[in-house]
Design a protein around this nucleic acid. Structure first.
Lengths: 209, 209
DNA sequence: TAGATTGTTAATCGATTAACAATC
DNA sequence: TAGATTGTTAATCGATTAACAATC
């Protein structure tokens, strides 16, 4: 897998390929051609082949792609073969929802800690993990080899907390706050702006043809 | 506002413009040039002007853009000046988190009902709204002029429920299930695939330069 | 071998950026 | 009026699609 410069558009499509291949695998399907996959996923076969060839040749002429092999290769590309330790910052509804949504653990994303600045929540257990006060965050991250911080707090707190995280050795921030974080290039930030998504939906309704 | 064919890329940027303009407005800033906004948002001034001009001229040569006016115009484009009635389907953690996250109401998205197929949850109150059994969904949608269904249930249920929704007069589905829904073109679907987002983040960590 | 389907190059399409005339 | 900045056209860049030779 020699990553020269894979475009964001390609990367954004990988999880969807992964999902479809997982379904095919579960159905016991062994091989699939780019053409058949293209019908299933409603994209062009050409795009599928181009996308995969960014990472090397996974197929075989005259045969197509081996489902399980391709599935595993995409997992590797996405880093799903590695374990990631994460903390959730913000033990409100969304934080708890993510903590309880445990398909993530199956993919190697292990919740090691949950933090909140509300003393009343501290000590409470969410999915067997005791909520800690946010003051302990910095120490905890360093001690527990935390890779990923999940930010599920309001935007004011998020900006400040992101600065703290930048000071620790955090690798990535999964940001649910409605604000763009300003952290060094070296930290990966993946935003989930739910209100942006809802506005896009709203646009779709209002401008329906 | 004459919508010929605005590209998805442009639409996806509108909520972000809206957010920044809202912040500027709150700070009492009256006008801004595309150049200043471009520095703030880290995009090109050219893109900003192109984007806005898809919807008509909102600026003035030699002056720039009036913040409040532009803010309101974008709100109109996004349909935020209209009210939307919505139901949440799935009263689990995520459904409750969204129900409780009430900035949505401020933007005109009114939660009218919450549904679940788990009898144990029915009758329980979430944010003052009594959870109903999913059997009542169809009836409720038709009676209460519901525009938007928020799907926060596992994927098997989601596919079936989407079919029911397609039968009602629903306008849009905000889909949090990890599956692509197959509904008529006339229904707007906006997906929030959290696991896809987390995989993108994972890719970012593993392939960091 | 013949048929199928990839990997890859070339063509097309669309989106972003640059440039500048129009105009406030 | 002169300066600033938009609206818009033209140039560039990148992503998608089409085509086909390579090869299993």
């Amino acid at each position: 897998m020699d990553d020269k410069n894979i475009s964001q558009a390609v990367i954004a499509r990988l999880p969807r390929y992964y999902r479809y291949l997982g379904d095919l695998k579960d159905k016991g399907i062994e091989r699939i051609s780019s053409q058949d996959l293209s019908k299933l996923m409603k994209v062009t076969a050409s795009q599928i082949r181009q996308d995969f060839n960014n990472f090397g040749g996974f197929g075989q002429q005259g045969y197509g792609y081996n489902v399980e092999y391709l599935y595993n290769e995409i997992a590797k590309i996405l880093g799903l073969n590695e374990k990631h330790n994460l903390v959730i910052i913000g033990a409100g509804n969304l934080g708890q929802a993510l903590a309880n949504y445990m398909n993530f653990e199956r993919r190697g994303f292990l919740i090691k800690g949950i933090f909140d600045n509300n003393q009343a929540l501290c000590g409470k257990e969410v999915r067997g993990i005791r909520v800690q006060h946010i003051d302990q965050l910095e120490h905890f991250i360093k001690e527990n080899a935390i890779d990923i911080a999940v930010l599920t707090i309001p935007k004011d707190g998020a900006v400040k907390t992101a600065e703290i995280l930048a000071g620790c050795d955090i690798k990535a921030i999964w940001n649910f706050a409605h604000v763009d974080l300003n952290v060094p290039e070296s930290i990966v930030v993946e935003n989930v702006h739910l209100s942006d998504s809802l506005m896009k939906l709203s646009y779709g309704i209002v401008n329906k043809k």
